Every structure is written in structure tokens, then in C-alpha cells.
Amino acid sequence: MARVMLVEDDDGLREALRLALVGLGHEVAVAADGPAGLAALAAPSAPAAECVVLDVMLPGIDGFEVCREVRRLGRLPIIMLTARSEPIDIVAGLECGADDYVAKPVEPRVLDARIKAVLRRAVPVERENGADGTVDLGPVRVDTRAMTVTKGGAPVELTPTELRLLLEFVTNPGQVLTRQVLLDRVWDYGYLGDSRIVDACVWRLRAKTEDDPARPRLIATVRGVGYRLDLP
């Protein structure tokens, strides 16, 4: 299973989730606020976390800022816990770099399934396109063997989910991929998921690969359907 860092300020919920996740086979470390969570993640003596489960509403430093800081440190998968149902709050978490979110009240088995899914996404499946495994998208080069992306020769830092999304587009150039298809293939959802996750991840991917994200030339929106990769 996984080594999970759970950052949640509600004492009762934190302990209930810890016990439930341990019962499902995970190793769980906990923190009650943002600074404590970041300190625990940075502690050299602690076993490295494989996934962070992070509440949005935290004292000290809120979950959005903690998410940004964790994302600056690398590709560690992040799942946000949110009591907010407004689309703008959910998308805000995803745009901070989260890989997924779970709405409160939290069902432990749903959270367990999401943890397993983000861990699978953290090890992208190799896709070969060119003879050397590289695909050139104008100034953007995708190496499907080394799992690296560059733009103009400079490295582009992608989260595991963003990388899998880009690989899905690269594998299917010119094809319209619906949001549900992308949820199934990239997020590993075997059910109707929330398409806002797809839209937010595409937004972040465009911000990192397009010269003008507001006028994308690589990842086109097919209104009312999904997205399509247009080769230069």
C-alpha cells in the first residue's frame, strides 16, 4: 500500500481517517496544520511520503498554499479534501497543482481508491512514438522513454497527472478525446467523474507548454466534447 501524509485540522476526522486508512493497509503520518505538514514532509529522518492528503481549510497556512509548496518540491501526488462544493474552490485546488480532490464527508474507501489511482499515475506507462521515443510538438519535445518534456530545450516540470495527460494526447494526435475518456484513461476513474478535473489539468498543461495559453495551438478545445492535440 502507500505511505500517506494526512494534513487535517479536525481532530476527530483526522483520527477517523488515519484509523480507516491504516485498516485498509496504508502507513499514515498525520499533521494538524500546514506548517506541521510541510515540516513533516521535509524531515530527513521520516520515511518519505508517497502521497499527501490535504485539507483545504487549515490554520496557519491554508491547503492551497501548502499544495503550492509541496508542488514546488516535486511530483509527490496530492489529493485535496474539501468541504466546499463551489466549482471555483475545487478548480482552485487543482490549479495549485493537486492531482485530485475528495469532497467531505469523506468515505474512506473512496479516498483509498483515489490514493491507489494517483499512485498508479505517478508511474506513467511508457509510450513509444518516434524511433528514439521522442515526439516534437514545435518547440515542445516529449521523450516517452525518459518521461521528460522540454520546451525550447529547457525542462518543463509536470506533475504525474499532467505528464500522463500529455502522453495520452501524444499517443492519439488529431483525435478528439472526450472528458470522460480522459477521466477513465488518465485519472483511472471507472465511473462518471468530475470533468472540472480534466479542464483544470488541461489549463495547467497549456500554461506550461503553450506560448499563449489563452490561444492554444497544441491542445485545442472541441466545445461541448473534449480536447484534441493538433500537431504543428
Rank of each mutant, 00 (worst) to 15 (best):
V70S: 06
D136M: 03
G23F: 10
V142D: 00
A117H: 06
V52F: 01
Y101P: 05
R18V: 01
E86L: 12
A200D: 10
R145G: 07
P173H: 06
D212F: 13
L17F: 10
L165W: 05
R75Y: 00
W203S: 14
T178N: 13
R109I: 10
R215H: 15
L166A: 01
A113S: 13
A36V: 05
P139K: 07
Y189F: 15
P35A: 10
K116M: 07
P87E: 15
L119H: 00
A113N: 10
P216T: 06
P44R: 04
A146Q: 13
G74H: 06
E168C: 12
P59V: 10
R71K: 09
G74D: 06
F169Y: 10
D230Y: 12
R71V: 03
R75S: 15
A207V: 00
P213N: 03
T150Y: 11
G60L: 01
D100E: 15
M5Y: 01
R3E: 09
T209D: 02
L167V: 03
C96G: 07
T159D: 14
A42E: 14
C201P: 00
V149M: 07
G97W: 05
Q175F: 08
C96K: 03
A122G: 09
L182V: 07
C96E: 13
D143C: 10
R109W: 12
L111Q: 01
E27D: 15
I197Q: 09
V118S: 02
I78A: 05
A2H: 02
D10M: 09
A154V: 13
V4C: 08
R120N: 05
V176L: 13
D184L: 04
D188H: 14
T159Q: 06
L231S: 01
A43T: 09
A16E: 04
G93L: 08
R223N: 08
R127E: 07
D230H: 14
P77D: 12
V52D: 00
V106S: 04
L94S: 11
R120C: 07
T161V: 12
A207H: 10
G130I: 03
A31D: 06
W187R: 00
L192H: 15
G190K: 14
G37N: 03
V30L: 04
G34A: 09
V4P: 07
D100Q: 12
P35G: 09
T159L: 10
C96M: 13
R215P: 01
D199P: 00
A48L: 11
A131V: 04
R215F: 15
E168R: 14
I79N: 05
L158F: 09
D143N: 15
G130L: 07
R109Y: 12
V70K: 03
A103E: 12
V176E: 15
D11E: 14
R18A: 11
S85C: 03
V52K: 00
E50N: 04
G37D: 03
R71G: 05
L54D: 01
D199R: 12
R120M: 11
A43Q: 12
R145Q: 12
W187K: 01
L76W: 05
A83Y: 07
R141T: 15
K151G: 14
A122L: 05
L94H: 06
A214F: 10
D11C: 03
P108V: 11
P47F: 07
V118P: 02
A42W: 05
P155S: 04
V181E: 15
D112A: 04
L119P: 00
R185N: 13
